[in-house]
């Protein structure tokens, strides 16, 4: 199984732990992730200010995958939603194909449709299958209590995602986490946004949104949070200290990527999965797991 590996902007600059752990898990499962040096920003952060230019950037990336005759695997939920949405708008009966192809002609490209975009978690569920994923687990994580954060663009807008999971009652990530033996605990604001897109507009509002979820998860007694998007991680891991000092709270809640949890179950060590790069220290959960 082979995909063009779309890293986006946040992961190479700020989330090497996500990239490291995803590459390890993919390798173990025989998923070949092809690096495409020419990929640029998916366009998502520009959608609010310049929708058309954001679409052009998305389409440019789709063209690069098309040239290599590969579907795209992404780690970032915002990249997943932006590229999937552009692929829809540029599909055979999509509204924007002709106009965007005019713009792409300046770079000597033309999009013909057909490139599929899949989040890494979705590749595991749909293309690999849970039985095959489970075959590679050698460590039992049943001492770990996790709270899943789905985030928004991993699932929404639902009309572009072929109903692969239920927006109001999502199950896909906990299905994967539960395979490791780890306990998945419920909490009130499970579907709430991380607040990330508001960070460049009004930091205090963004941090207030993130704080609500950290409060709920710590109250529910989780050892760690599990997520699938680097920008959600910026809000909960990178900014956890700022939230604590801004609001006078104390969480000390490790924030793990799904791929780090799966990697632990596969027997990879702390450094191989970039757990030493996480901002909130992960040692206490590793010792709880006897690792």
């Amino acid at each position: 199984m082979k995909y063009a590996f779309f890293l986006g902007c946040t992961i190479p600059a700020r989330s090497r732990n996500y990239e490291l752990s995803a590459r390890k898990v993919a390798d173990k499962l025989g998923i070949e992730l092809i690096d495409v040096e020419e990929f640029i920003c998916c366009g998502f952060p520009m959608k609010a200010s310049d929708y058309k230019s954001a679409e052009i950037m998305g389409a440019y990336n789709l063209c690069l995958a098309q040239e290599k005759d590969l579907d795209i695997c992404v780690l970032c939920s915002s990249c997943a939603s932006q590229l999937t949405e552009v692929a829809h708008s540029l599909s055979e009966d999509g509204p924007d194909r002709e106009q965007i192809n005019d713009e792409l002609s300046r770079a000597g490209l033309k999009y013909g449709g057909g490139v599929k975009v899949r989040h890494f978690a979705r590749v595991l569920l749909e293309d690999i299958g849970i039985e095959k994923v489970k075959e590679h687990f050698i460590k039992d994580l049943s001492d770990l209590k996790t709270a899943i954060h789905y985030g928004c663009h991993y699932l929404k807008p639902s009309e572009i995602y072929d109903g692969f999971d239920d927006v109001e009652n999502p199950k896909s990530i906990e299905t994967l986490v539960a395979l490791t033996g780890a306990r998945v605990i419920d909490y009130p604001g499970k579907k709430r946004c991380c607040g990330g897109p508001v960070l460049p507009v009004e930091e205090n509002v963004a941090l207030s949104v993130a704080k609500e979820k950290l409060d709920d998860i710590v109250d529910a007694g989780a050892d760690a949070m599990c997520l699938v998007c680097p920008f959600c991680s910026v809000m909960y891991d990178d900014n956890q200290k700022s939230i604590e000092s801004e609001f006078g709270t104390d969480y000390n809640l490790p924030v793990l990527y799904l791929t780090q949890i799966l990697g632990l179950a596969m027997g990879f060590d702390r450094k191989e999965l970039g757990l030493n790069i996480n901002v909130v220290k992960t040692k206490k959960i590793l010792s709880k797991l006897g690792l």
Binding site: P45, S49, S53
Partner: peptide
């Protein structure tokens, strides 16, 4: 938001994001 930008109204943070991406191809240049 797109219409507001066309009228010249946007928060500085959003303007910086747009200009960085259009100039460098990435929101966090490497």
């Amino acid at each position: 938001k797109n219409l507001a930008v066309k009228e010249g109204n946007m928060p500085t943070g959003i303007r910086v994001q747009r200009d960085t991406i259009k100039g460098e191809g990435r929101i966090y240049p490497i």
